[in-house]
Amino acid sequence: MTDNDYKQIDEYVNGQLAGKALADFEAQLLTNKTLAEEVALYKDVGETLTTNYAYEKEDAELKQLFNKLGKDYFPKEEAVEKTINVEQDNTNIVQLKPVIEKNDSNDSSGDGGSSGIRWLKPVIALAVAALIVLLIFQPWQRSLIDNYYEPYALNITQRTGSNMTALIQAQKAYHSGDYASALPVFEQYPDNAEVQLTKGNAAYNLGKIDEAIATFQQVASGDSVYVPAANWYLALAYLKKEQPEKAKAALDNIPEGSSYYAKAQELRNKI
């Protein structure tokens, strides 16, 4: 097939052929199976990719609704979050009170060691306060990111050639949590934005946050369809590095039509 053949196919599919040109083309379609197959594929590729790329706004709205309904009908995250908060609250109060009350009762018993314990009280209080700070802030910070972070779901299927077989294997390793095996394979696909996005995720999960940030930045500065996703993961990586302003800036780069928009806004408000 030449460029000119595709010109004719394009005009036919878009209803731009008329009169004799149309009649000739349709006659060819009846006898030329290769041409008929090319036309069918041309049409299907156009229609199928249109259902994916032309509805970003609608898809974002649907995603928002699905997420909302998902929370009601498949309860999980909120319950976990509540449990963590309740545990923290109980830990703070329940652990603090018995320690002090016990010491008080020791004091009033007139025990010889009471003055030592009295002297220890501010130290204990300080230690408990430090514990509270640790319990409250560290897990809270982790859970905010972890509640939002989900590894990118790479879904490459059955490519031909040995390199692709390696990629499929790496994908399998990645999905099973073996990020260390997957990462070097992903590095072999520097021009494939989706694989790079996944590579950033693998680095992120290996604790190589700087490397993850560099990879996400690279994808985010391109013009692929993965730019919003790259900004999303970039924001989470910045949060991991405790750089909230940079995280906010990355979230602000996610356009309104993107499927990441709703949760990006939600996360931004929580930072």
């Binding site: 097939m1 030449t2 460029d3 000119n4 053949d5 595709y6 010109k7 394009d10 041309y42 590729v45």
Partner: peptide
């Protein structure tokens, strides 16, 4: 149009 036809042709291949 010329660029579209060439790119679509490459994609089909």
């Amino acid at each position: 149009n010329q660029r579209v036809h060439r790119c679509r042709g490459n994609l089909q291949k």
